[in-house]
Design a protein around this nucleic acid. Structure first.
Length: 263
DNA sequence: CGTATTTGACCGTA
DNA sequence: TACGGTCAAATACG
């Protein structure tokens, strides 16, 4: 595909993303969501605008920057067997990284965590994952997950490389993310029971403790994936923010919450 | 007991 | 030399 075509396709996707972000912003505004959430929506829109401008610039600037071939980018290339040298990460790979802000860490693929690192200037550590089928299928897909500082329920995921077609994907789970109107949720590939599982323990919490009984306990102890249903609850005045914001939710039991989310 | 996760050590880059 | 990314031994878990 020509660079201009790719840029055009990317612009289309970004326009779609921007539209969704604008709708989210309007929704948050209408429901009186706290300024932090509205600022986050604005930030998403600004980022998309910058990305669109960058893509337009790159596409309009001629082909001087497109000299690298797919092979030359070195993506997915493994070092020769026996080589002790670590593969060098080319700048091409960096350029092809896909960054996703998501409410769920799970995207339907099987990942294996291989590292966790505190990053300077970041409050939360960064998690490193690679495809669980790397050895079996030679899949070179990797991702880095950062928990957003201003909204710990959101994850900033950077994907490197692509999964091989043979990599199994949790399609049942992906299909389960269709709502009653047949609309696909934002977080595609979320496992069916992921809502019932915390994706990460909150700081200082035991990740293995029993499912809490009350809403306050549950939001205070865990970081949960934000599904569309939960987003609806947020927009209808139910806050999933910090434990301190949850005083009014004592009356909501887990059972009632599950009824709201999975009628 | 096999598999997944944790975490300190190591390596490459800027 | 500091920092980010990855490795791999130790550990936890089912």
């Amino acid at each position: 595909m020509a660079t201009a075509d790719r840029a055009s396709a990317a612009c289309g996707v970004m326009a779609e993303a921007r539209e969704a972000a604008v709708r989210l912003q309007a929704l948050l505004q209408a429901t009186g969501a706290d300024p932090g959430k509205r600022e986050l929506a604005e930030q998403i829109i600004r980022c998309i605008d910058r990305a669109r401008a960058a893509v337009r610039g790159a596409a309009g600037g001629g082909s001087s920057t497109t000299g690298k071939t797919e092979q030359g980018l070195g993506l997915g290339a493994r070092p020769p067997a026996g080589s002790k040298r670590r593969a060098r990460r080319g700048c091409g790979e960096e350029a092809r990284a896909r960054v996703v802000a998501s409410s769920a860490m799970d995207d339907g693929y099987a990942w294996r965590k291989y590292g966790e690192k505190s990053i300077q200037g970041h409050k939360n550590p960064r998690f490193y994952f690679r495809c669980a089928y790397r050895d079996e299928l030679g899949c070179g897909a990797r991702k880095q997950v950062d928990r957003m500082e201003d909204d710990p329920s959101l994850f900033h995921t950077t994907y490197f490389g692509e999964h091989t077609p043979a990599c199994p994907r949790d399609d049942d789970a992906a299909a389960a993310q269709l709502d009653r109107d047949g609309h696909r949720f934002v977080a595609q590939g979320l496992p069916l029971d992921s809502f019932r599982r915390p994706c990460l323990p909150a700081e200082g919490q035991d990740p293995n403790k029993e499912m809490p009984a009350s809403m306050v306990e549950f939001t205070a102890g865990y970081c949960w994936p934000l599904t569309d249903q939960m987003a609806n609850l947020v927009s209808s005045g139910v806050s999933f923010g910090t434990p301190g914001e949850l005083g009014s939710l004592d009356a909501i039991s887990m059972e009632e919450l599950m009824d709201l989310l999975w009628p």
